[in-house]
Amino acid sequence: MIASIFSKSKPINFIIVFFITLLAFLLANLEDINKPIQLSNVLYLMVLFLASYISILMLDFIVSKNKLTQNNNYEILLYALFLVAIPLSLSSGNIIISNLFVLFGLRRLISLRTQKSMNKKLFDAAFWFAIAALFYFWSILFFVLILFTLLMYTDNKIKHWVIPFIGIATVFILAVSFSVLYYNNFFEVFKSLPITNLDFSTHNNLPFIIALTMLLSFGAWSSVFYIGEIKNKKKSFRPSFKIILFMVITSFAIVVLAPEKNGSEFLFLFSPLAIIITNYIETMEVNWFKDVFLAILVLVPFVLLFL
């Protein structure tokens, strides 16, 4: 039943995902919602929810445009379910905005497979990753994806290696200029600093452990099949699938390095993980097993709400 609903890309799927995302967002921001109603607070929450949902639409666009999955909507369903499983992933406004800009950068980076407008795409990818870093410093690690992509394409043109750094420099100059004009200070705008924290004790609660176990076990199992299937993809598409795999590794590094271990740091992990698990679901030939697999992913997040 579940598999058949999302097996094709349909408008109803986006409506379902919209309400699942709304539920996760409300759960993550209960404290703000319970505050006395103020227009500024309402607008702030609306902007964050809009950014959260646009991230899902951007994920679908990246996937469909670059044929990272077949013609279905499993990836957006999984992404929304991950949000419900770990609702605190939507508790940080900075990370929500940063994640959206990371997806903007990923869109430009994966489109390099066409080998057209390389200069512009490399600049755009670095530009968006740098803006993401203004909101959450450790998202700058996604800049490594650009270098990884250039290595895969064995690109020996010096200008292609220099352009991404120009993209970062551009954002830095714009940010400093804004800081001087608005704060009368050169570096006031750089509030996200390279702080680390390796204390995971805040995650020591049953619902979070169950959600994380489900996420990592399903992700790890699917990754084994995902890696094996890359060689069966068309040669021009293989780098795109490798970028998604490397993005998972980078996102996991951010989870480890995150200065605040409150669950919001896992948001970066959801997009690439949803793509990888969707690819595994597509390899399932037995319908009942596919339904059971998806049923677990659907039921567990909602059951955790009552723990």
Rank of each mutant, 00 (worst) to 15 (best):
I168N: 12
F190C: 14
Y153C: 08
L26Q: 09
N185A: 11
V162A: 12
N71A: 07
F127R: 06
F129D: 04
F306D: 15
A132N: 03
F306W: 13
F306I: 09
V255R: 02
L122D: 08
M284Y: 09
W138C: 05
I166E: 06
F186M: 12
M214V: 02
I275Q: 10
V180Y: 14
L269G: 04
M118L: 08
F123H: 06
L83P: 07
L59R: 04
F18S: 04
L68V: 03
W221E: 09
I33M: 05
N72E: 01
N13I: 00
N232H: 15
S240K: 03
P259E: 01
I158Y: 15
L174S: 10
P36G: 06
N66D: 05
I5R: 09
L45N: 07
N71Q: 14
V298H: 05
P11T: 03
L112F: 04
V171Y: 08
P194N: 04
K10P: 09
L109Q: 07
F143M: 09
F127T: 10
F25G: 00
P87M: 04
K261G: 01
M118P: 11
V298P: 10
K159M: 07
K120E: 11
S92Y: 00
I16Q: 03
N29P: 09
F252I: 15
P164L: 06
V102Y: 02
Y53W: 09
D32R: 13
L193N: 07
T196E: 10
V189I: 13
L23N: 02
F18D: 04
F142A: 02
L50F: 12
L90T: 00
F178W: 08
T21G: 11
L59P: 06
S91T: 06
N94G: 08
L59Q: 01
P207L: 01
S7M: 03
K233C: 10
S201P: 11
T202E: 13
I227V: 08
F266L: 04
K65E: 14
L59E: 02
S111H: 10
V63C: 00
F266E: 01
I54D: 12
F127D: 04
L269N: 04
A51I: 09
K10W: 07
I296M: 10
L43A: 11
A211M: 01
S40F: 09
I243V: 11
T149H: 05
F135R: 04
I86P: 00
P272R: 07
V180L: 12
L134N: 13
L48Y: 03
L43C: 10
L57K: 12
F19L: 01
I20G: 00
I62G: 00
N66K: 06
Y226E: 06
F293V: 06
I86N: 01
I195G: 10
I97L: 06
Y136K: 13
F143H: 08
M284F: 11
Y153G: 04
N41Q: 14
L59D: 03
A126E: 04
Q70M: 11
L297M: 03
F143I: 12
S264Q: 02
I275N: 03
F187D: 00
I16D: 06
S240C: 02
V144Y: 15
I37T: 07
K35A: 12
F200R: 05
S222R: 00
A28I: 02
T21A: 07
L294Q: 03
V171G: 02
Y153Q: 14
H160N: 11
V102K: 01
L181Y: 08
I110A: 04
F142W: 10
M58K: 14
A220H: 10
